[in-house]
Amino acid sequence: MDLDHARWRTSTRSGGGECVEVAFVPGRTAVRDSKNPCGGTLLLPESAWRSLLSSPGR
């Protein structure tokens, strides 16, 4: 998936140098480390992203 034009935003739960960025693209949520934006990117199905956000202890 081409993420060159994705609109990345830093998670509101990031802090202390442990920053995570997310971008919402059709049918997926992309997640990457803001300190290494050229590194790997996780592409999660929308259902997996919702499940992650609703999990206890997040």
Rank of each mutant, 00 (worst) to 15 (best):
M1G: 10
M1T: 13
M1N: 03
D2K: 00
D2T: 01
L3V: 12
L3D: 10
L3K: 09
L3N: 09
D4I: 03
D4A: 14
H5T: 10
A6K: 08
A6Y: 05
W8Q: 08
W8M: 11
R9K: 13
R9Q: 11
T10L: 04
T10V: 15
T10F: 00
T10Q: 14
T10K: 15
T10E: 07
T10H: 00
S11I: 08
S11G: 07
T12G: 14
T12Y: 06
R13A: 10
G15E: 08
G15K: 07
G15H: 04
G16E: 12
G16R: 06
G16F: 03
G16V: 10
C19R: 07
C19H: 04
C19D: 11
C19A: 07
V20D: 03
V20M: 04
V20P: 00
V20E: 00
V20F: 03
V20H: 11
E21N: 01
E21Q: 15
V22R: 08
V22K: 08
V22Y: 14
A23H: 06
A23S: 06
A23W: 01
A23N: 02
A23V: 04
F24Y: 07
F24P: 00
F24I: 14
V25F: 01
V25W: 01
P26W: 08
P26Q: 10
P26M: 11
G27K: 02
R28M: 06
R28W: 12
R28S: 03
R28C: 03
T29Q: 04
T29R: 11
A30L: 12
A30Y: 05
A30I: 08
V31L: 04
R32A: 03
R32M: 02
D33M: 03
S34N: 05
S34L: 00
S34C: 06
S34M: 02
S34G: 05
S34F: 13
K35F: 00
K35G: 05
K35M: 02
K35D: 05
N36C: 07
C38H: 15
G39M: 07
G39T: 04
G39S: 13
G39I: 04
L42E: 13
L42K: 05
L42Q: 12
L43N: 08
L43K: 08
P45R: 14
E46K: 07
S47H: 12
S47Y: 07
A48Q: 09
W49G: 06
W49S: 10
R50S: 14
R50V: 15
S51V: 04
L52I: 05
L52Q: 07
L52M: 15
L53D: 05
L53A: 03
L53V: 13
S54T: 15
S54N: 14
S54D: 13
S54G: 15
S55W: 01
S55F: 01
P56Y: 11
P56H: 15
G57R: 12
G57M: 12
G57Q: 14
R58H: 14
R58A: 06
R58I: 07
